[in-house]
Amino acid sequence: MASESEHSAVVEDGVRRRDFINIAAVSFAGVGAVAVVLPLVNQMNPSADVLALSSTEIDISAIGTGQAIKTSWRKQPVFVRNLTADEIKAAKAVPLGELRDPQTIDERTKPGKENWLITLGVCTHLGCVPLGAAEGENRGDFGGYFCPCHGSHYDTAARIRKGPAPTNLVVPPYEFTSDTVVTIG
């Protein structure tokens, strides 16, 4: 009888030992579940071999003025373009206020090497490869690149000028290891 009265006293208090055990047990199971879900979600992220930043070396000596080549870095296409003086002038003539993603050509090239425009060949809309790197391809209304998928036009500094793409073509991290060799990555 004594134990029963003791028990009811605790009930009146509102919190039983069993409530605590219940909450503790369920919370612990919850923590355990989250701990299991994390690796299950994380396995979807790029794996170590994909992430391993293979830096790509490109020999640019063969690219004449006005020409461009298509190469690849991290399985994504890269455009290397040797701009003509007119193309640089055209890019500089555009007021920044007119641009959807305002950037000058100087911000998109290396100092003293502003004729070398190096960008990812991945349209920032939905990821198609724009035309304009190869000879004779459609370069769009602004003389740069044109994405045929959904009609985005890029100018001679690969900046978005018309169409659905939100930003300029991405400039990857790169440096000139010599006058004729560029290392991307």
């Binding site: 979807m44 992220n45 790029p46 794996s47 994909v50 991290r74 399985k75 994504q76 991945v122 809309h125 939905l126 990821g127 198609c128 998928c149 939100p166």
Partner: peptide, 25 residues
Amino acid sequence: VITGFFSAIPMVGEPIRQWLLGGFA
């Protein structure tokens, strides 16, 4: 193109796309 939809989400779009693809392309 279809996984590119997800990169339209502000801030977290590109990480989500990479998570879906398990790579950059």
